[in-house]
């Protein structure tokens, strides 16, 4: 016998010329080409005067508005946006984590009760995240008026849907062997969750939560267009009055917020792994 054993020819997968994936690729490629064809290419693509506006916008990047009163305003707007994002994420985690745990099927012992719990919570999570935060915002503003609570809920609910969905996947995907060992020493499913699932999934749970936190800052800025104040609202005012310098200052604030979250996330993860 020879070592290593020669691989049999049938072991190498042969690609069929047009499998399901190939068809899908063709379809998507075709759709893209078609969408290009629908663009009215020509001198009217950018509306008249648009080129001048873009030039002004870019020129303003070199002289952002830095007067102390405006800086104070930008700082206040940043603070408000960050506060909405933090509060929204708090709501999202508070709702998403318990739903995610149930949706992972980690707590149910019987096959039937697991199926029921998983299907019900997955459905609820899907409903929460199927509706965009802007739509939630309209709903809550209609119901509660222009209050911070409307913004926080509008942000928190769809984010809970996304977080719960991902949490369920992460908690269900941890290595099984340590969990079996915990059950063998008499642990209940709740204890297995605490001592096996959560610790093993924690690094990924944190990474993903921080990533969504960055998204929440972006969303909070957008939500403030609805009239709830914050960076997005100020940007809208600046754009309406063609004060491009202010726009750049506000954009810089937004970038700074996202970078700050990223740094914080890195620090937390570094400590966790150390």
């Amino acid at each position: 016998m020879t070592w290593p054993p020669r691989q049999r020819a049938s072991a190498t997968p042969r690609r069929r010329p047009l499998d399901g994936r190939g068809v899908l690729t063709l379809l998507l490629g075709g759709a893209f080409a078609w969408s290009l064809a629908t663009v009215p290419w020509g001198p009217d693509l950018v509306h008249p005067g648009g080129e001048r506006a873009i030039a002004q916008l870019l020129a303003a990047a070199l002289r952002p508005e830095l007067s102390p009163p405006f800086l104070a305003l930008a700082l206040e707007a940043s603070w408000r946006t960050a506060a909405y994002a933090v509060a929204g994420m708090t709501v999202a985690v508070a709702i998403g984590l318990p739903l995610g745990v149930v949706a992972s099927g980690a707590l149910a012992r019987g096959a039937l009760s697991r199926l029921g719990a998983v299907a019900a919570t997955r459905g609820l999570l899907a409903l929460l995240r199927a509706i965009h935060e802007l739509v939630w915002a309209w709903l809550f503003v209609a119901a509660l008026g222009l209050s911070p609570l409307a913004a926080i809920l509008a942000l928190g609910l769809p984010y809970a849907g996304v977080l719960g969905r991902i949490y369920a996947g992460l908690l269900g995907d941890v290595p099984e062997a340590p969990l079996r060992a915990l059950r063998a020493s008499g642990a209940s499913e709740w204890q297995v969750l605490l001592y096996g699932r959560l610790p093993q999934a924690l690094p990924d749970l944190l990474s993903y939560t921080f990533y969504r936190f960055e998204c929440a800052i972006r969303s909070a800025a957008i939500l403030s267009f609805v009239g709830l104040g914050g960076l997005g609202y100020q940007m809208q005012l600046a754009l309406d009055d063609l004060r491009y310098g202010e726009l750049w200052t506000l954009l810089a604030c937004l970038v700074a917020l996202v970078v700050a979250v990223d740094l914080w996330s890195g620090e937390v993860r570094r400590r966790l792994v150390a």
């Binding site: 020493s185 008499g186 642990a187 709740w190 204890q191 001592y195 610790p199 093993q200 690094p203």
Partner: peptide
């Protein structure tokens, strides 16, 4: 089959989970 992310003390005390209530384990 230890849980690598936990401190040694928790992996050792996991041997007591059968005797512990949930609150105590938390």
């Amino acid at each position: 089959d230890l849980v690598p992310h936990l401190a040694a003390v928790h992996n050792v005390l996991a041997g007591r989970l059968g005797e512990w209530r949930l609150l105590r384990s938390l």
